[in-house]
């Protein structure tokens, strides 16, 4: 599987540093939930390579990414501010506090498969923009994330068919992490793989080892290049494993064995990248220790940022419903304000 050429040392170390930062922030976030700093979190433990490898391939100046609720690693690879991203898990604001228009990361999406069609619309908009007299070289590409569970949703079919019919520049990035909460892929995905469905839409697909950051990066670059050149959509299925629970409210002990989890741990994507650095470039322990320390320091800064993040004012509830508010909404806000002041 690992026939992908090893990236230059500079790039591989960047990928590794992202992997470790994402890993340590993810572990820390579960800890913060247990400590009461955040009310809930959806861990991505085990999926770091799938997320970092794909997110790293994005050109944030012209591409646009459509995440689910478990793409912290993608967001980090796109250099989105992690306090503003994690604000969703602190229950500050559903979509997070980062600016989607500026970061090119759509708001965090809690509807399973909810944003896959949005990617198709955004991508078709890029095609239309290319038809205007002035255009740059190659179109912007939409990268949409969803999982093996979401692949059962009808919107995913509609999205793939629309994209293929319209030749929209969309990369459908499937993280097959083995589990849709408690239901394993075998009980979820007929036909053996989501990637196999691409052929039915006349769309090329790539099946990659989602625990190998190098393969994921190469596949994503290939798919983005395919789309950017105007060849229509492409699908990537990255096979990985959700080592943690679905969320901090979940108990995997009820549906899978510890032995299964231990076996999956041997696939650790962070360790694999470290091993590659050692064998390909002879990277030594000092480097790994400093990367770990930097990652821990970053997680600590995010914790400080989250703990000092004040709740949004209640007026925000009313402010963002419309661009042009309504008399009824203004009246409700006034009433709310008057009645809250008495409390």
């Amino acid at each position: 599987m690992n026939s992908t050429p090893t990236p230059p040392q500079e790039e591989l170390t960047k990928l590794y540093e992202l992997l470790v930062r994402v890993r340590q922030l993810d572990i820390a976030a579960v800890r913060w939930q247990r400590q009461g700093i955040i009310p809930g979190y959806a861990p991505l433990l085990g999926q770091e390579a799938a997320q970092v490898g794909s997110g790293y391939a994005v050109d944030t100046a012209r591409d646009f990414v459509f995440p689910t609720y478990r793409e912290m690693g993608v967001a980090r690879a796109m250099n989105v501010d992690m306090v503003q991203y994690m604000a969703t898990h602190k229950a500050t604001w559903h979509g997070g506090l980062y600016d989607p228009a500026a970061t090119h990361l759509a708001p965090i999406q809690a509807v399973v498969a909810g944003s896959v069609l949005h990617a198709v619309g955004w991508a078709h908009g890029q095609t239309l923009a290319q038809h205007e007299p002035v255009h740059g070289a190659g179109t912007g590409v939409a990268l949409t994330y969803f999982g093996d569970g979401a692949s059962s949703q009808g919107d995913v079919h509609e999205a793939m068919n629309f994209a293929a019919v319209m030749k929209a520049p969309v990369v459908f990035f499937v993280q097959n992490n083995g589990w849709a909460i408690s239901v394993p892929t075998a009980a979820q995905v007929a036909g053996g793989a989501v990637a196999a469905r691409a052929a039915g839409y006349g769309m090329p697909s790539l099946a990659v080892d989602g625990n190998d950051v190098v393969s994921v990066l190469a596949a994503t670059r290939q798919a983005i290049g395919h789309c950017r050149a105007g060849n229509g959509p492409m699908l990537i299925e990255a096979t990985t494993y959700r080592l943690g629970p679905h969320s901090t409210s979940d108990d995997p002990g009820r549906y899978r064995s510890l032995a299964d989890e231990q076996a999956a741990r041997s696939l650790d994507p962070v360790q694999r990248c470290a091993d590659l650095l050692r064998t390909a470039y002879g990277t030594g322990d000092d480097y790994f220790e400093s990367v770990f320390a930097d990652a821990e320091a970053e997680a600590e800064r995010v914790r400080e940022g989250l703990e000092s993040l004040a709740p949004r004012p209640g007026a925000d509830m009313f402010r963002y419903v419309f661009q042009e508010t309504t008399p009824a909404l203004q009246h409700q806000e006034t009433t709310w304000r008057e009645e809250s002041e008495h409390v």
Binding site: F64, A106, V120, A142, D155, N161, F162, V165
Partner: peptide, 20 residues
Amino acid sequence: TPLAESGILGMSVGLAMAGF
């Protein structure tokens, strides 16, 4: 468009995000 209303409306969201 293809004959799928969720697709039509979902696509509208993305087009609006792209400034249309």
